[in-house]
Nucleic acid binder design. Structure first.
Length: 225
DNA sequence: AATTACACCAACCGCTTGGAG
DNA sequence: CCTCCAAGCGGTTGGTGTAAT
């Protein structure tokens, strides 16, 4: 038994993509757009499965991708978003134009997790972990408590810290206020970062300036399937 | 210079979701 | 409704580069 493979894998290439493969996929999508990933490798002359092509395009070839390491403000915002969205990387990535869910997920697993542990925070719950000898100063405790601005119950209800106590809010409500807060430099964690005022506007500007605008593919609306 | 340990990230796997028929 | 299938998504793996010994 078991699940059927997503595609016929016999004879298909796996592993790292070559420059030639990238060119083929890039040229095909730029000329034809994407209508059906399963047909893309066949029509583009690639010995890959559609899923692999999709991933390569989404995570590496897309012209609107922002290259380079994630910045401090981006990192802070990831932490903030993760505290209420959990491991929903695509939702988190949606707040970062030009960044992929895979990139954010990798960054979380390799760096942010470690950083949080060093700060005495549980990366899963974003709450303080069991007190350790060097994390017990009152100053530290105060600072960390202030970061616990939101929690969610099992039924998905969000509770946001407000004057006079906790108030309930929807994910969307919280989303708005959180982003606004970060944009205005209102987050305690983001306040230390100098470039916050220009972000995330810059990636958006890049998008506008980019000659390979994603929108430019919209006119490729004829069907392959 | 060689070996080992570690960090990073691209790519894969398999489950879930959503739309078409 | 129900079934099927493509796409989306998140967890995990494995290859590669670099630092430490």
């Amino acid at each position: 038994m078991g699940r059927q493979p997503c595609c016929e894998k016999i004879g298909l290439k796996r592993g790292p993509w070559t420059w030639e493969e990238d060119q083929k996929l890039m040229n095909f999508i730029l000329n034809n757009g994407i209508q059906c990933w399963r047909l893309v490798p066949k029509l583009a002359g690639l010995m890959r499965c559609g899923k692999s092509c999709r991933l390569r395009w989404m995570n590496y070839l897309r012209p609107d991708l922002k290259r380079g390491a994630l910045t401090e403000p981006e990192e802070d915002m990831i932490i903030e978003l993760h505290s209420r969205l959990g491991n929903r990387w695509s939702k988190i990535a949606a707040h970062f134009p030009g960044r992929t869910d895979n990139e954010i997920k990798n960054h979380w697993n390799t760096r942010i997790k470690k950083k949080m542990k060093l700060l005495g925070l549980d990366p899963l719950t974003h709450k303080r972990m069991e007190a350790t000898p060097d994390s017990e100063s009152k100053e530290n405790q105060h600072g960390l408590e202030d970061q616990e601005t939101v929690s969610s119950s099992k039924d998905g209800q969000m509770w946001q810290k407000a004057e006079g106590g906790m108030v309930s809010c929807t994910y969307d409500d919280y989303d708005e206020s959180c982003i606004k807060n970060l944009m205005m430099g209102g987050s305690a964690m983001a306040q230390n970062t100098e470039s916050l005022g220009t972000w995330p506007m810059d990636p958006f500007q890049n998008w506008i300036d980019n000659p390979f605008l994603w929108d430019s593919f919209n006119h490729f609306d004829y069907r392959f399937c």
